[in-house]
Design a protein around this nucleic acid. Structure first.
Length: 437
RNA sequence: GCCCCGGUGGUCUAGCGGUCUAUGAUCUCGGCCUGUCGAGCCGAGUGCCCGGGUUCGAAUCCCGGCCGGGGCGCCA
């Protein structure tokens, strides 16, 4: 057989009365006795094959015995017909079963009954045959392409840092430990230290889109143990504001990119994400506390804002028309050692979170680039500077002021598409309980 | 990890001490049907998460485990 058509679009452009080969999955077989319809699913839709018993009885038998989701190639003639999908169908001449599907299916691609998410994940390759499931990843791909597009425009280069680490990085989050030829090694929880080290080199605007691993036993719809982190770091900043400006431009630009290029998958999903107007509001930590207080939620100054508080703030800002905003100047006590404390009020930092629809998308800020202050900060957090020599050495021989952020791509995809669970935005999500597939 | 709720054919559900030889749908298999497009009609098939316990009797009650859903903590 000739090479198969790869899409409905190609099928629609094939000459009428000409011969085509359809390659795809058998979505359904409707046998009416003397005529049968076989729906063949291609990447962008289904094409109907209409087989008549009297035309070729043995071919008719073969076609009507096909099990759903089998992979086939069917050669035949293109016939215009008002009653067919797309106004045309295929009159079959030859069938080749490339890969028969077992019955029954673990979940029906076009069944009318619901399927639990866990069953879908156990059978993800079948689940991904649903256009609405696949559309999520088409959008996600565009989102990443949009980020790269904006970052290139702003002079950033893409880098890749080690995912196997010899030492625990930032403290706090638990690390997955593994064996490295008899030595202890850890899966990287973040490229934080490496991307900062690059700021000392002249590669002064870098970003990375890569996996990050957290051994936190978090069990929520917004946590997984393996996620995709979008990190960026930029040198020669004058302050936190320089970082905010870049991040908001990159995120808004990427959303606009998705809307421009992704009308097909967005249509399948029935969502129309808003591109936020810039600049995004900057809500300072003390202001956030005031809003919370006014809503009857007490948070002591210097403490972190809990999930409930975060949701309240999200709603308060949404009421003012902002589904995305920055929460800035967090207390020093609840931030990692590498953030820069404010000179006038050292109990607060030049740091921020990016909030979107009530969830945290990114966190970042200006970093401490003065080695003495950095050493003090490590000690104050109860960490031993000796364990961070490889990192500190980058500061010893000249480090410009710098800042950056880490953003969860999976979360951004989830919230942009209003998905109920971060796992919907990950092909093969891994969490506390799930490691397979 | 903690709190609340749950686990019934391949899938999704009803049942919540005997009336269960377990409901319905979907699915699978077989049959009928020349225009289906959530095809229709007829027939058949497959099941109570695991381990203890209570009871004359457990899908149903109790305990433990595993798994799932929601929430919290933590964060991307």
């Amino acid at each position: 057989m000739a090479p198969p058509l790869r899409s409905v679009q190609e099928f629609l452009h094939a000459p009428a009365a000409g011969t085509v080969v359809l390659g795809g999955w058998v979505e359904d077989v409707r046998n009416l006795g003397s005529i049968a319809f076989i729906l063949v699913r291609l990447r962008d839709g289904t094409v109907q094959v209409a087989a008549k018993k009297k035309a070729d009885e043995s071919l008719f038998q073969e076609l009507t015995k096909l099990t759903r989701e089998s992979v086939v190639e069917i050669a035949g003639k293109v016939v215009e017909n008002k009653e067919a999908r797309h106004g045309r169908e295929v009159q079959p001449a030859q069938l080749s079963i490339l890969s028969p599907a077992d019955t029954p299916l673990p979940l029906g691609v076009v069944d009318k009954v619901g399927v639990e998410f866990d069953t879908r994940l156990d059978n993800r390759t079948v689940d991904l045959r649903k256009p609405a499931t696949r559309a999520i990843f088409e959008v996600r791909s565009l989102l990443e392409a949009g980020l790269r597009h904006e970052l290139a425009r702003l002079g950033f280069i893409e880098v890749h840092t080690p995912k196997l680490a010899g030492a625990g990085a930032e403290g706090g989050a638990s690390l997955f430990q593994t064996d490295y030829f008899g030595r202890k090694a850890f899966l990287s929880q973040s490229p934080q230290l490496y991307k900062q080290m690059l700021m000392a080199t002249g590669l002064d605007r870098v970003y990375e889109i890569a996996p990050a691993f957290r051994a936190e036993p978090s069990d929520t719809v917004r946590h997984v143990t393996e996620f995709t982190s979008f990190d960026a770091e930029m040198a020669w900043i004058e302050g936190q504001e320089d970082v905010l400006k870049v991040l908001e431009a990159v995120v808004a630009g990427s959303l606009a990119y998705v809307k421009e290029k992704g009308s097909a998958p967005l249509g399948v999903l029935g969502v129309d994400p808003r591109v936020p107007a810039l600049p995004l509001p900057r809500l300072r930590y003390p202001e956030a506390l005031e809003i919370l207080q006014a809503q009857g939620k007490r948070v002591r100054d210097g403490q972190d804002i809990d999930t409930e508080g975060e949701k309240i703030l999200g709603r308060a800002m949404a009421d003012k028309g902002h589904e995305m905003f920055f929460l800035t100047e967090y207390p020093t006590a609840i931030k990692p050692f590498y953030v820069m404390a404010q000179a006038e009020e050292p109990e607060y930092t030049w740091s921020f979170d990016l909030e979107y629809k009530g969830d945290e998308m990114a966190s970042g800020g200006q970093r401490e680039h003065r080695i003495d202050a950095l050493r003090d900060s490590l000690k104050r957090k109860g960490l031993d500077p000796a364990g961070f020599e490889f990192y500190l050495s980058a500061f010893r021989y000249g480090m410009p002021p710098h800042g950056g952020w880490g953003l969860g791509i999976d979360r951004l995809t989830q919230k942009m598409l209003d998905l109920p669970n971060i796992r919907e935005a990950i092909l093969f999500p891994h969490d506390r309980n799930r490691l397979v597939p």
